[in-house]
Design a protein around this nucleic acid. Structure first.
Lengths: 340, 340
DNA sequence: AATTAGCAATCTAAACGTAAGAGTGCTAAC
DNA sequence: GTTAGCACTCTTACGTTTAGATTGCTAATT
């Protein structure tokens, strides 16, 4: 285990590096963090820490830079659980003050506010879409040849879509509503997807053939769209990191834009609420970056995962606070009585 | 006026520069475009064109680079009105094949497909939002304490939003619907905004006070949101231009992200259908970039403006074809009988 | 035994200089 | 008007030098 002083030194290096993004020297550490020890002593500690794999030097005459291992140690041991600043809380609260009608809207908002407040890139991945249960489907006539289909689930409205129908009148709407709900209500998206046979049987007898097809295809389109539904916000923030280069930015974008792989990275299958991935191996090839991921649940049901991608030297404390506060805000958005 | 050979030379320079993004030399032009003339002759033509302001040299011993003036001449005289490739047409058609329920969705889709097909950044700005006339407002009860408000206009559904109401029941919905439509239907968003007095009078007598407020604030929020509503897609494409640098990319993003200024640039008040802005002065400070803008109308009513932002040496021909084809697709999306 | 001061050694980053190459502009001839 | 030839200019790449930063080592000190 690391001696207490080694820990202090390690922490100092990481803290400084997070602040200034340049290698930190023994002199800096001595003057800013230790009154009673000389830089020579710090130097010997530093080289011990380097030996142990916590630090590295870009070159012989440079200061030390934390390694992924150092960040891991730092995150596990030193993250000050600072409360969010009042202004940040205000920003987040303000974003969620209106009612939302669709999940996508909520997710988009959450992603944006996370990125805005942290100043890093955020990613949200929705999961378990096909476990969503359809509560009711509303059919609202708009004019003589179009109608609005509203699909309401236990997670709120998932989709509304205009469809074209030959002739819309009151009795048609009434009858169609009854039939649609008889067929679809109470089933999850997944069940419906795997059991289209039933739909076909119903259609044999039905004058609403086209309509039923439309509804089904809306549901299927939703499922497909959401399955790897990845919302990303603040991609261009990466350009403003002091360590940015054109090459690194391009690489960053190419990983971020690959929805499949980014969602694999963000989604933690384990039970942990937060995880931190540091180092090229763990970030899918994004260099010098770290990813903080959180599992989001609403009323105990897993909604998906959120992630913040920033430089390794990011403000972990703030990122975690923001992720967790936004998680709470999402929960508050859907009080349990709406689920019943 | 430019002699016919000067025109050929100028065109050759621009064509080459569009292809390779590096200054073009007299030698290249001679070998690739002129069999019968020597490079010395081309050189004298080049220096004449430089004298006239069409070309410039990054330095004495470099080839020539087209000036904004040259691009203007090129665009006006040489743009081959090439039809779109079949595959591009297919991509665009595919994007617009489903019905859309909200304008935002349409705009988002259009912006994305423009950016995807051209491989440049696209921007769409909506205009004249407050001239949109409200046809009808539907109120659909969802459960005992919430309802969905759907605002239908002559341009389709502009917004649907869930609101909270104390007690929702059939008679409430019926009465509220009548009242809401009595107050709001037939007016444009602009009229409503400037005449909230009437609403207040109605509220005095009404048990639907809160509801009316909700509807009004949805409309106002929509108006505000859309007034400078700018949708941007493909921002990160700029990183892949061969002439890209970190600095230029940052600059690009800062201009692009300023919705107010980008919308001023994109929106052409004149009568022209297309315009091309080349040069730092005309692009709001984005260097080495050109902006092609188009005015989009649906059934003669001005919807807004679309723009493509790419390098000065972009494929103007393709960009204009794409913008114009997407414009047609948007028109097809809203057949005139839906407006009546 | 741990700490420290002092100093040589090492490396970077910036500044400078040089050389090769690209492309022009000019001139004289066609 | 066109062209070949060539001197001239400027960039870019590369090597060199220098100043500065920081370390690691050693010997002295606590």
């Amino acid at each position: 285990m690391l001696s207490s002083r080694k820990q202090r030194v390690l922490r100092a290096v990481v803290d400084e590096y997070i602040k200034q993004a340049t290698p930190v020297s023994s002199g800096e550490i001595t003057s800013k963090y230790f009154d009673d020890i000389s830089s020579a002593t710090i130097r010997s500690e530093l080289s011990a820490l380097e030996e142990m794999g916590y630090l590295s030097q870009p070159h012989t005459s440079a200061g030390r830079v934390p390694s992924p291992l150092a960040y891991k140690f730092y995150v596990e041991n030193f993250i000050p659980k600072m409360p969010l600043r009042k202004q940040d809380i205000a920003i987040i609260d303000a974003s969620f003050k209106n009612k939302f009608s669709q999940i996508e809207e909520i997710v988009q908002t959450a992603a944006r506010v996370i990125s805005d407040v942290t100043n890093y890139t955020s990613v949200i991945v929705l999961k378990n879409i096909n476990k969503v249960v359809i509560k009711e489907i509303k059919l609202v006539g708009l004019d003589s040849n179009s109608a609005l289909i509203i699909i309401i689930t236990d997670s709120g409205i998932i989709r509304d879509k205009v469809i074209t129908i030959n002739t819309v009148n009151d009795s048609f709407v009434r009858d169609a509503s009854l039939l649609i709900n008889k067929i679809f209500s109470g089933y999850s998206v997944g069940e419906l997807k795997n059991n289209t046979a039933q739909l076909r049987v119903e259609q044999e007898l039905s004058e609403f053939k086209g309509l039923l097809d439309d509804v089904m295809s809306i549901i299927l389109a939703y499922e497909e769209e959401c399955d790897h539904n990845v919302v990303t916000e603040g991609k261009t923030k990466v350009l403003n990191y002091p360590e940015a280069s054109l090459e690194s930015a391009k690489n960053f974008m190419s990983v971020i834009d690959d929805k499949k792989s980014i969602s694999d990275i963000i989604c933690n299958d384990g039970d942990i609420e937060f995880s931190i991935k540091i180092g090229k191996d763990e970030t899918g090839g994004i260099d010098k970056c770290a990813i903080v991921t959180a599992k989001y649940t609403i009323n105990g049901k897993q909604l998906g995962h959120a992630g913040v991608i920033g430089p390794e030297r990011m403000d972990y404390s703030k990122v975690i606070s923001v992720l967790s506060y936004v998680g709470e805000a999402l929960n508050a958005l859907m009080p349990s009585d709406e689920l019943s």
